[in-house]
Computed example of a mutant assay.
Amino acid sequence: MTKRVLTYKRIITGVLLFLYLAFTGTICPQDDSDSFGERPRDSAFNTLVWSDEFDGAGPIDSEKWFHQTQLPPGGSWWGGLIQHYTDREDNSHLRKGYLNLVAKKELFEDQGEIKQYTSARLNSKFAFTYGRVEIKAKLPEGIGTWPAIWLLSKNINEDGAYWDNQGFGTVNWPTCGEIDILEHWGKNQDYVSSAVHNASSYGHEVINLGGQNILDASNKFHIYTLEWSEEEMVFSVDGVTHFKYEPSDKNSDTWPYDSDYYVILNIAIEPDIDPGFIESTMEIDYIRIYQ
């Protein structure tokens, strides 16, 4: 009887242990071959107001996106960047349900300037004030690549930008305000950062920023999130916060973030690009904006 009772106890203990391990994910974990998934957080913004799921194949949705290709004065993008942005499908297209932004090494002439690299820069035709932005993306790689997912105020005075073309461009950068949800430099692989630029903190002197190391930024999808309210901005990856901006004194220098902003997607190429670089892609599964 004693041996039989012990055997039953072992069986019950084993079953309970198996159920515990299965429940906690220690065994039979969820497949994460494509994404690490989102760790949900409480949010005041739960109504979807705009999105692009990038379904289908071929050109991007011109009802939602504008290709910004016009070079700034001087013939190069700010910061000494060395790419042309184009509106060709070679550099931006839908494929298998994903948006593909492609940076390529190729000789390309446009606007009287010859450059050795091409990429794409998209402006959203939707602008909003406050909300939660979620982007599920896989980033390009290569020393000298600089992908970004960010927001600019639609009042920025920037010739060639979508909202400037619509007559809204009245305020110069950085006074207009900029919100960088994601930046990734190929020279610092798997470190992603977020920042805010304004009249009190901008350019190489920006002090309002933070970041984190993530696993396989270029081989796995991650969810990049901005939570933007009247009080603060919170930046996270897969639900893990790495930067919060909440200035105690909100004025026109520190908080120009009370008006409409639009989304920008781009891959820039820095002058120190790896000479062996040929091509790399930023894949985006979706962009969703909630209010």
Rank of each mutant, 00 (worst) to 15 (best):
D272H: 15
D274R: 10
T145C: 10
P275A: 01
Q111M: 14
D164Y: 04
D258K: 04
G167E: 07
S76G: 09
W65R: 00
G203F: 14
Y261H: 06
I149D: 02
E113R: 15
S259N: 12
K104S: 01
N46E: 10
T225G: 03
N123D: 13
E106Q: 14
S218M: 09
W150Y: 15
L265P: 00
D258C: 10
S200K: 01
T145H: 12
F23V: 07
I27L: 10
L81M: 14
N91L: 01
D55M: 11
L265M: 06
R288V: 09
D260I: 08
Y257V: 12
S92Q: 10
L209S: 05
A22S: 13
D164S: 04
V133C: 04
P275I: 08
H197R: 04
E232N: 15
L151F: 02
S92D: 11
S194F: 01
L139E: 00
R121Y: 05
G144T: 06
V102P: 00
N91T: 02
G112L: 02
Q70M: 10
N198G: 08
E134P: 06
A148C: 03
L81S: 08
H67A: 14
L151W: 00
L6V: 15
E227P: 03
F128E: 08
Y245I: 13
S200H: 07
S153C: 12
I223G: 01
K244W: 11
D87E: 14
D52I: 00
I181D: 02
K136V: 00
T118K: 00
D249Y: 13
F235I: 07
G37V: 08
L139R: 02
D31K: 02
I267P: 07
V240K: 12
K104M: 14
T24N: 06
G79R: 03
V263N: 01
A120I: 14
V5M: 11
P73H: 08
E283M: 08
E109C: 14
H197P: 13
L152I: 07
D52T: 07
K220W: 01
R88I: 02
D34V: 08
G25K: 10
L265A: 08
T13I: 11
I156E: 12
I179Q: 01
S51T: 14
L122H: 06
D87K: 05
T241H: 06
E38M: 08
R288G: 13
I143Q: 06
E178H: 06
W50E: 03
P147I: 11
K187G: 13
N46S: 15
E53S: 05
P40S: 11
L122P: 00
K154C: 05
L48V: 10
K125R: 15
A268S: 02
P73F: 07
S92K: 00
Y202D: 10
F66I: 07
I143E: 04
I149A: 01
Y262L: 02
K244T: 13
Y85D: 05
L99P: 00
F126V: 09
E279Q: 14
